[in-house]
Amino acid sequence: MAGIRFFAAAAEAAGSETTTVDVASIGDLRMILSDRHGAEFAKILSRCSLLVNGIRAADDAVPLAGTDTVDVLPPFAGG
């Protein structure tokens, strides 16, 4: 199962900082997490960057393995 880490607003909307999911791709992950955590989370997720093992995964076809770690990062500002 891939390990998922939520940060900032994504963690708040999910009600957790971590979870595990058994999925084959980033697209599947988005669907499962949206179903699991509801409409407000799905809205936040649509604006998030997803990193798989530290590398940005912009394409829903990016495959996921059971040993992968996915970081869900909402947009942030700062300087």
Rank of each mutant, 00 (worst) to 15 (best):
C48I: 05
A11W: 05
F41W: 10
A58K: 12
L51Q: 08
L50R: 01
L51A: 15
F6R: 01
L45Q: 06
G38Y: 08
A10D: 09
S34T: 05
A57W: 06
N53W: 08
T20F: 06
G78K: 04
M1T: 13
L51W: 02
D60T: 00
A24W: 03
T20Y: 05
A65Q: 12
K43D: 15
R30K: 15
F6W: 12
A77G: 12
A13I: 02
T69C: 03
A24K: 09
V23P: 02
A9Q: 14
I4T: 08
A42T: 07
S49N: 09
T18E: 15
P74C: 15
R56G: 04
I44S: 08
I26P: 01
R5H: 11
S25V: 09
M31S: 14
G54E: 10
I55G: 06
T19G: 08
L73W: 10
P63T: 14
F76E: 03
I26A: 05
A58W: 02
S46T: 11
L50Q: 08
S49H: 12
G15P: 04
D59W: 01
D71W: 03
A9P: 02
A13V: 04
A57Q: 06
S46P: 03
T67E: 14
D68N: 13
A8Q: 12
A61P: 00
A58E: 13
D71T: 04
A9S: 15
L29I: 02
L29F: 01
L51S: 05
D35K: 06
A61E: 00
G66I: 07
N53F: 09
R5Y: 03
A14M: 03
E17K: 00
P63K: 14
V52T: 11
I26S: 01
E17W: 00
S16Y: 02
A42C: 08
G3C: 10
A57F: 08
I55T: 13
P63D: 03
L64D: 10
I32K: 09
G54K: 04
S25P: 04
G15T: 09
H37I: 00
L64Q: 10
P74K: 11
T18Y: 06
N53S: 09
S49W: 04
T20V: 12
V70I: 14
A11L: 13
A24S: 14
T19M: 11
D22K: 05
P63M: 10
M31P: 01
A2Q: 12
M1D: 06
L51M: 10
G27R: 07
A13M: 11
T18N: 09
A2S: 15
R36L: 10
E17S: 08
N53I: 06
T20A: 15
I32G: 04
F7A: 00
A42V: 05
D60S: 01
F7G: 00
L73P: 07
A77T: 11
S16D: 13
T20E: 15
A61H: 00
V62G: 07
S34H: 06
L64S: 10
F6L: 13
F76T: 07
D68Q: 07
N53K: 09
T19R: 05
S16G: 13
K43C: 10
T69Y: 01
L45V: 07
A13R: 08
